[in-house]
Nucleic acid binder design. Structure first.
Length: 271
DNA sequence: AACGTGCACAACCGCCTAGCA
DNA sequence: ATGCTAGGCGGTTGTGCACGT
């Protein structure tokens, strides 16, 4: 088959539309299949990301509510940076969104904290880095080793330990499904900024009840109904195109490419 | 008005895991 | 039992916009 160079970068409206149509028809699991058959020249991964983070109809747009913010803080303190897991507790929010929120929120907290500790310190916007030990800005990467924006590591050794512990936790967690590990996020012995964040978070939030809006924790299996499309149902076989699907593809092609499908659109291997 | 800075968000990368042949 | 592949996840980077100076 002819493999054009994979597209990268921002998605166009047309691409979004195409992806939405194909996900509507084939479900939100067969990403490589969708990527190929839609001729988007995107990787399956990229398609999935776009769908999950942007096109998913269940997504909430706009700012996080105070309730959501508190919940994020609470759950982050409880589970650490398990964003996808945290996201499951926040209907309509993606792990990416929460991750981004946490990053900016924590940066703000760090700046505020710094200001309260060192009132004489510059408080102008140009102040950039919240503190000498806190490297939260991706624009100014740390010189020594890799530190994430929340692994802002007061203790350089910790990140290694922490990682090892987190991996352990993750492994045990994935094997023991459904068991929520209370120790999560309480890894390592050093006092890093992670701990500082936890402290900040705990100091400002009280017990928060989870937000449920008809959302279930295992609601990944979402069912999408597109205008004019049947409710999303995918076949048992993930990788074989069925006769049914091939019947769907042809009219869809006409819909997307009224003037004729471009070269490579709809890999006919599948038809 | 122009410029600089920080924020918010989208997207990519690399690694890990589960499922299957 | 093992290797391969797709999907999932966390971390990181890039970019446009808003806001302050």
């Amino acid at each position: 088959m002819i493999q054009e160079e994979t597209r990268k970068g921002p998605w166009t409206e047309q691409e979004d539309f195409q992806l939405t149509c194909f996900v509507g028809q084939f479900g939100d699991r067969r990403w490589n299949f969708i990527a190929e058959v839609s001729a988007l020249n995107r990787t399956g991964k990229s398609c999935r990301l776009r769908w999950v983070n942007y096109l998913h109809p269940g997504l909430k747009k706009g700012k996080m509510t105070p309730q959501e913010e508190k919940l994020v803080i609470e759950l982050q303190g409880k589970w650490g940076n398990r964003w996808s897991r945290i996201a499951r507790k926040l209907p309509g929010r993606t792990d990416n969104e929460i991750k981004n929120y946490w990053r900016t929120h924590m940066r703000q907290q760090a700046q505020e904290r710094k200001r309260s500790l060192y009132p004489s310190a510059s408080s102008s916007k140009g102040g950039s880095s919240p503190s000498s030990t806190i490297t939260t800005d991706s624009a100014s990467p740390p010189e020594n080793g890799k530190e994430s924006f929340y692994d802002t590591g007061g203790n350089p050794e910790k990140t290694v330990m922490e990682k090892a512990n987190e991996d352990k936790v993750r492994n045990s967690e994935t094997t023991v499904m459904g068991k929520e590990n209370e120790e999560e996020g309480q890894t390592g012995k050093g006092y890093s900024l992670d701990d500082l964040w936890d402290e900040i978070a705990l100091s400002e939030c009280s017990l928060i009840s989870p937000i449920y809006g008809g959302w279930t924790e295992d609601s990944h299996t979402f069912s999408c109904t597109l205008a004019g499309s049947p409710a999303l149902q995918y076949s048992d076989s993930l990788w074989e195109i069925t006769e049914e699907e091939s019947k769907i593809l042809l009219p869809l092609r006409d819909q997307l490419y009224p003037c004729g499908a471009p070269e490579g659109a709809y890999n006919t291997d599948y038809l």
